[in-house]
Amino acid sequence: MSKVENNKEQKRNSLLDSAFTLFIDNGFSKTSIADIVKKAGVAKGTFYLYFKDKYDIRNHLISHKANQVFQAACAELAKHEEIKDFEEQVLFIINNILDQFAGNHNLVLLISKHLSWGFFKDFLSAAPGKDIPSIYETYEAMLAHAAHTYRTPDIMMYMILELVSGTSYNTILYEQPVPLNQIKKPLYEIIKGIFIQYRES
C-alpha cells in the first residue's frame, strides 16, 4: 500500500472509529456528520469522499466492525490446526464471536440491531480489504474441505446466523433468560442438528 493509499485508509478508519464512539455514546439520531468529522479531526469535505451520508457510514461501520470480529475469530481458528472438520470449525468461530460480543456489549448493540438479511447478504460477499477474503469466500473455502456436502448451504448459513443472533442478544446484554455460558450448550446442539438436517445423503 502506497503512502497516499495508507493515508486515505487512515482517514476512513478514523471516521469509522469516531462514528462508532458517537453512535454508542449519543445515539445515531443525535449524532451529526459535523460531530463525526470534528472527533475524527478531518474536514467535512473529507467525509463525503468516503460516505454519502450518515446512514451510509453506519452501514459501512457495521460491515467494518463485523468483519473485524469475524477475522479475529478466523485468526484464532488458524492457531488450532487440529480442528479440521467443517462443522467444528463453524462452531469454533461462532463461539469465539460470542465471546468477543460478551466482552464488548457495544458491538452487540451496533451489529445486532441494524442487520437485515438483505444488508447482511451483501456484506458477506464484500471483501473487507485487499488480499483479505470476504466472509462468504472463507465459508466456501471451508465448505470445499468439508467431510459432507450440504444442500442449499446458503440457506443453512442463514438459519444458523439467525438462530445465533436471535438467541444471543438478550443473553449477552441482559443475561435473559439465562447467561450466555448457560445458553451455549443447547445452542450448539441445535446448530449440530441443522448441519445434520442439511447434509446430503
Rank of each mutant, 00 (worst) to 15 (best):
N6C: 05
F92K: 06
R151Q: 08
F92W: 03
L15T: 02
Y158F: 05
D131N: 14
N26F: 04
I97N: 14
L109T: 07
F86G: 10
N67R: 05
S201H: 09
L77H: 12
F86C: 09
T138C: 10
A144T: 07
E175R: 12
T46W: 06
N106P: 03
I111D: 12
H80G: 06
F70A: 00
I160D: 00
A146P: 00
H145N: 11
G166K: 02
T31G: 03
S14N: 10
L107S: 05
R151F: 11
G193T: 09
L163V: 05
Y174G: 06
A75D: 01
G45V: 03
A40S: 14
A73K: 07
M142T: 06
I83G: 13
L143H: 00
S201R: 11
I194Y: 08
Q71D: 02
Y169H: 02
A126N: 15
C74F: 15
L163R: 02
E76L: 12
L143K: 03
H64I: 02
D17N: 15
F47R: 13
I33G: 05
I183N: 14
A40P: 04
F86V: 03
D122A: 13
L98F: 03
S168D: 06
E82Q: 14
H148P: 01
L143S: 01
N106V: 00
Q89Y: 11
I160E: 01
M157S: 01
V108G: 02
N95M: 02
V69H: 06
V178F: 09
V42P: 08
A141W: 01
Q68L: 05
Y150Q: 06
Y188P: 03
P186K: 03
Y150K: 08
S165A: 11
K39Q: 13
A127Y: 01
I135L: 04
L22V: 05
S201N: 12
A146R: 00
M142L: 13
G166A: 04
D122N: 15
N59M: 14
E88N: 14
Y55I: 07
I93R: 04
G27I: 05
D35H: 12
I94V: 15
H145G: 05
A146S: 06
E175W: 12
Q89L: 11
L143I: 00
T31I: 07
S168Y: 03
L16E: 02
P133F: 00
N7H: 07
G129L: 11
H114K: 04
I36W: 02
E175K: 13
D53S: 14
L115M: 11
I36M: 10
H105T: 10
M142I: 01
A144R: 13
F28T: 09
K113P: 00
Y139K: 09
I83V: 10
Q89S: 12
N170W: 00
K54R: 08
N7D: 07
N106D: 06
D56F: 05
E76Q: 15
E189S: 08
N95L: 05
F20Q: 05
F20H: 00
Y150S: 09
Y50C: 08
P133E: 04
I57D: 00
F23W: 04
